[in-house]
Design a protein around this nucleic acid. Sequence first.
DNA 1: GAAGTCACG
DNA 2: ACGTACGTGACTTCA
Length: 556
Amino acid sequence: MVGIAFSWEKGKGYYLVLPEDYQQTLAVLQPFIAFFEHPEIEKVGHNLKYDLKVLRNYTIEVKGPLFDTMIAHYLVNPDMRHNMDVLAETYLNYSPQSITELIGKKGKDQRTMREVAESDQTEYAVEDADITFQLSSYFQKEMESADTLSLYQQVELPLVSVLTAMECEGIRLDVSFLKSLSKTLTEDINQLEKSIFTAAEETFNLASPKQLGLILFEKLKLIEKPKKTKTGQYSTAEDVLSYLAKDHPIVSDILDWRSLQKLQSTYVDALPKEINPKTGRVHTIYNQAVAATGRLSSNNPNLQNIPIRTVRGQQVRKAFIPRDENHLLMAADYSQIELRIIAALSQDEGMVTAFQNNEDIHKATAAKVFNVPLEEVTREQRSNAKTVNFGIVYGVSAFGLSQQTDLNRTEAKALIETYYATYPKLRAYIQDQIDFARDHGYVSTVLGRRRYLKDINSQNAVVRGADERNGVNAPIQGSAADIIKLAMIAIQEKLTGEQWRSKMLLQVHDELVFDAHKEELDALKIMVKSEMENAFSLAVPLVVDIGVGKNWLEAH
DNA sequence: GAAGTCACG
DNA sequence: ACGTACGTGACTTCA
């Protein structure tokens, strides 16, 4: 830490210069602890989670009310970027000094803030504090008029501290297991590569879609009219190749090569590099202000997209392990939360009843739309019903459904029609959302989180259609995000307030992952299940499934 | 840095 | 006739 800027009056600010030496810095910070840890003084910042984590490294545990201008603006307009310099220009009509002017473009010549003259540091940092302070009162009013202040104060701000704790906790990885996984992957990848080059009768860069396209569609001429990407290149995307795989062994080898290559480069080899040498654990960073629907995102590394769908992919999950022999990993996930939300919001009797009776919703849907008894539903019928159930949430078309299933467009269209006839209030609900959006320009979640849809009344059917689908999807995906955020806050409150030894580690949209202390396991299951299921009350019950194991795969 | 691809919910 | 399912982040190639 190089310095800290403070401002508590528009246009004024103060800059605290900190020495390079850690112990000396602690001494300089000593008189400020009373401020940072004061339970009543509100601390305003832009991306406070970052500042909270830096201060933690200097043994300061920030307390008291928070105001985060980045998150405030995320609620004011979730689709925009939230960089402070842009916000200053947009809302204060003021262009702050850019960081690049001060330290240069990124690269080897970039200077550190420590190397900048103290007077320049002061000017820059104080301007930052001043702007942030001014933005806070502006966004406060904006949130009041959009009625999102309670979402901000009761959910988003408390979540900042919860995420800080989760990120600092991190999760343990089994590195030697990943190393051996990488070895077998290399062998299989080399094998596939060999057979692909033999079939192609030449070697080329398999990782280059451009080169691959030329081989498949110009040299081997696999089909008459290959699909092209928007830049005119041959498309070699998964759905295109899958279609060809059954007739051409080289194509299925390419698909296998791609999937193994992906596993190795994105996960197996990359994850160990992300281990923090100080803690020996992997610490993702959650972004609370990127996903326009209210979801979190995860990066450096992304722990929200760890493989699970394929057997080879599942091996990666085995590498996520408990912190020590006294712990197990516990995973708790909401069962069908988005469909439960659409059922509750639409009040459709058929769907609500199915959930109240705790039925297998895809099977129940199949029985209804294919008009067969529950016990006679085939695998294929259930699978198609499942695809429609998910598709409805996104606003699927007959074309889209036919792409995702083995149905043709006519059959897909008929299935969608039958679906709406089965769940009539779903269609009414979807129409209501679109009508509301047309009148008000936005839609909202159960906690009043808004998403503005500027093209909802557009003359252009394509962009209007996109906003209509967003108008249906955003309240559902966003309400699910609201609910799990409420649960996380309640759970973390218990874990810290009651001094549990178990820790909450990860969030994956509808799932929470814990380091569960073996002695607390039974109690933890009960507490987490109850807090998640009762985080928010809907017209249908929320159901949480819990799993425990010696790795993340086993916990499912 | 854009484009293409693919991992997840 | 047209375009065609929501939300993300990471890796590789290539201009």
